[in-house]
Computed example of a mutant assay.
Amino acid sequence: MTHNKNILQDSHGRDHAYLRISLIERCNLRCSYCMPEEGVPLSPKSHLMTYEEIYEIAKTFVKHGVTKIRLTGGEPLIRKDIPVILGKLATLPVELSITSNAVIIDKFMDVLKVNGVKKINISLDSLDREKFKHITRRDQFDIVYKNLLLLVEKDFHVKVNVVLMKGFNDNEIIDFINLTENLPISVRFIEFMPFDGNKWDMGKMVSYAEVMEYVNASFSKVQIERLQDAANDTSKNYKILGYKGSFAIISSVTNPFCDSCNRLRLTANGQLKNCLFSSTESDLLTTLREGKPIEPIIQKAVLAKLKIRGGMDTLEKLQEPKLHTNNRTMITIGG
């Protein structure tokens, strides 16, 4: 193996410049597609990365070509040292962003601004208070919606992530799109994906094609504008003519975007996942704590990345429970 080879390039020629770091496995909501109702066994605190370890690992990735870091969880803002983590990562030459459920984000507006965080993804699966309560098992809709408006007012670039589930919130697709009429946000409809404990089945999924059926039934062809997708984009982007915002569909199940994938994931307990769907992990934290270089482990993990969805390259394989129950629950991977 040559030493000058880019350690973040996989065997399919994909370069990985985007690292998603989960800061915590805990959350202040209990979304059913993310966490089983009975909860999940959490890693002991001593097994989680400290802020120094997060910084050291991130610094190594940046040295080898990572230009974008997104902080996730659980809910990253419930981690008590989040201001310190943001401050450390802000010293690196990266675009820093965060994914949050927005329940307590109003308390962090200043610390996000001061550390250059401009892009915020908000998870919001229903605009109906009772449905929100049902799916999150918490009655927090009003505060989340208020904080969404506050983020827009404070000039953050806001994306709203909506996991679609048939018979639950698919009748809200147009309501969400109409939210973009007066708000400069991007609403992103996400196909329901299989993870351990979330009772996934193909019948619950609302596909890209089905979302577009709703759109085409509500708007005329001349109103629906197909936008140019950014390089390495996971979503197919659209806009309704005259609306301030836009909407997009993330079709990980029916139209995977694996060919241009540039993402790696680091779990809160320091495991590197080369793909969201992969059931294998590489332990960076133990090696770091032993004072050994983590580059060889990173390179091996990246080279082992499979071409499509952790090897589930057909819908038939995706529907085979044993192929995705070896994976973590979504909350312990990081959104």
Rank of each mutant, 00 (worst) to 15 (best):
8 L>T: 02
9 Q>W: 01
13 G>D: 11
15 D>H: 10
21 I>A: 01
24 I>A: 04
44 P>G: 06
47 H>R: 12
47 H>Y: 02
47 H>C: 13
50 T>L: 13
59 K>Q: 12
64 H>Y: 15
73 G>L: 12
80 K>G: 11
81 D>H: 06
82 I>A: 02
85 I>E: 03
89 L>W: 11
91 T>Y: 02
95 E>W: 02
95 E>Q: 13
106 D>S: 14
111 V>F: 02
111 V>T: 15
115 N>F: 05
119 K>Y: 10
120 I>M: 14
126 S>T: 00
131 K>L: 07
137 R>K: 15
138 R>C: 00
140 Q>V: 11
140 Q>E: 10
140 Q>H: 13
142 D>C: 04
145 Y>C: 07
145 Y>H: 11
150 L>G: 03
154 K>N: 13
157 H>E: 14
160 V>S: 08
166 K>Q: 10
168 F>W: 09
168 F>D: 04
172 E>V: 01
173 I>N: 05
173 I>P: 01
174 I>H: 08
174 I>L: 13
183 L>N: 12
184 P>D: 08
186 S>T: 15
186 S>W: 02
188 R>G: 11
188 R>D: 07
189 F>S: 15
189 F>P: 05
194 P>E: 13
196 D>V: 03
207 S>Q: 03
208 Y>S: 15
213 E>L: 06
215 V>G: 00
216 N>A: 04
231 A>E: 14
242 G>D: 03
244 K>Y: 14
245 G>D: 09
249 I>M: 14
251 S>P: 15
252 S>P: 00
255 N>M: 05
259 D>W: 08
261 C>S: 09
268 A>R: 03
272 L>M: 08
275 C>I: 02
276 L>A: 12
281 E>P: 05
283 D>Q: 06
294 I>E: 02
295 E>A: 06
300 K>C: 03
300 K>G: 06
300 K>H: 09
304 A>M: 10
308 I>R: 14
313 D>T: 05
321 P>M: 01
321 P>K: 08
323 L>G: 12
332 T>R: 14
